[in-house]
Design a protein around this nucleic acid. Sequence first.
DNA 1: CTTGACTTTAAAGTTAACTTTAAGGTTATA
DNA 2: TATAACCTTAAAGTTAACTTTAAAGTCAAG
Lengths: 146, 146
Amino acid sequence: MSYTINQVAKMLGITTATIRYYDKEGLLPNLERRESGYRIFYDYEIETLKFIQIFKRAGMQIQEIKQYINLFMEGEITLEDRQKMLLTQKENLVKRRQEIEESMKELDSIIEFNQSALTSDAEKQLRDSARELIKRKEEEKNEISD
Amino acid sequence: MSYTINQVAKMLGITTATIRYYDKEGLLPNLERRESGYRIFYDYEIETLKFIQIFKRAGMQIQEIKQYINLFMEGEITLEDRQKMLLTQKENLVKRRQEIEESMKELDSIIEFNQSALTSDAEKQLRDSARELIKRKEEEKNEISD
DNA sequence: CTTGACTTTAAAGTTAACTTTAAGGTTATA
DNA sequence: TATAACCTTAAAGTTAACTTTAAAGTCAAG
C-alpha cells in the first residue's frame, strides 16, 4: 500500500509542508518518487515519521533525529551508538523533569505568598510595604538629583 | 546601595545585553538613569530580575512576564489577576511534566527493545528483519519502475 | 479534453529571545 | 590628562523549526 503526501499528513496530523521539510533535512532517506516527481510513501516511511514524532516529543532536535536515522540506515552495527543517543536523551528528560519540579516549587511559594495576602490581613501589610517601597524609591531619586 | 549594569549581570549570571533587552521590553519599569544615561540598579531592580529568572524557568514568555510586572505595578488591586496568571502557569508546568513522563515511557520502550537486541539472540532477528525490509523496498522499487 | 484538486520547488517570511556590531559618549585612576 | 574600561543606542544578525508564497507541473473525474 502506498500513500500521497496529503494522505500521510492527515494520518499523522501534520502538514504536507512539514513532511517536505523533514524530507529536505534528510529525515526520510531513500524516499521514492514517481516519474512526475511526486513522493511515494509506504508503511516504512510512515513508521519513520511516527518515530520522528516520538523523538521530537522527547525533545530531540531535527539534526539529532537525522543522525539517529542515518545510524539506523547503517544497520545493526550502529545499534550501540543509537542506544547511547537514546540514553543521553533520556537523561535530558530526567533533567527537564527535575527542572520543572524545582520551578514548580518556586512558583508554589509565590502563589502561596499571594494567597495569604488575598485571604488574610496580610493584604494590608503588602499594600503598606509596596507604598514604602515607592516612597523609598522617591527618596533615592531626590538624593540623586540633588 | 546601587549597582552598575555590569555588576548586576555578574551577580545574576546573565549578560548586560540581556538586561538591556529586558529593560527595552519593559520588564524593568521606572528604572533610574544617571545624568549620563547610565542605568542605576537598586535592590528592587535586582529582586525584579530574580523574579524574571524564576518566571522564565517556569516557562513564561517575556511578554507574559511583562504583563505580570505591569499588573504588579498597578498595586494590590491586581493581586487576583496575578494569582490567576501564576495558577495558569502552574497548570502548564503540570502538563509539561505529564508530557515528559509520557515521552519517557515511549523512549523507554525503544531503549528496552534495542537492549534486548544488543544482549540476546534477538540481535540476529533484528538484522534479518532489517534485511527483509530493504529487500521488500527493492522489490517495490522494481514494481514501480516496470 | 477540461478543470479542479492535487503535487513540485526555491526562496522568503515568521517567531522568540536573545546576541552582535558599530559608533560614540562617560568614568575612574594613574 | 590620557587612557582603559566602562556605558549608551539602533540596527542587524542568529537559531530552530517550521510556514508561506509563487510559479509551475500532474492527476483524476466527468
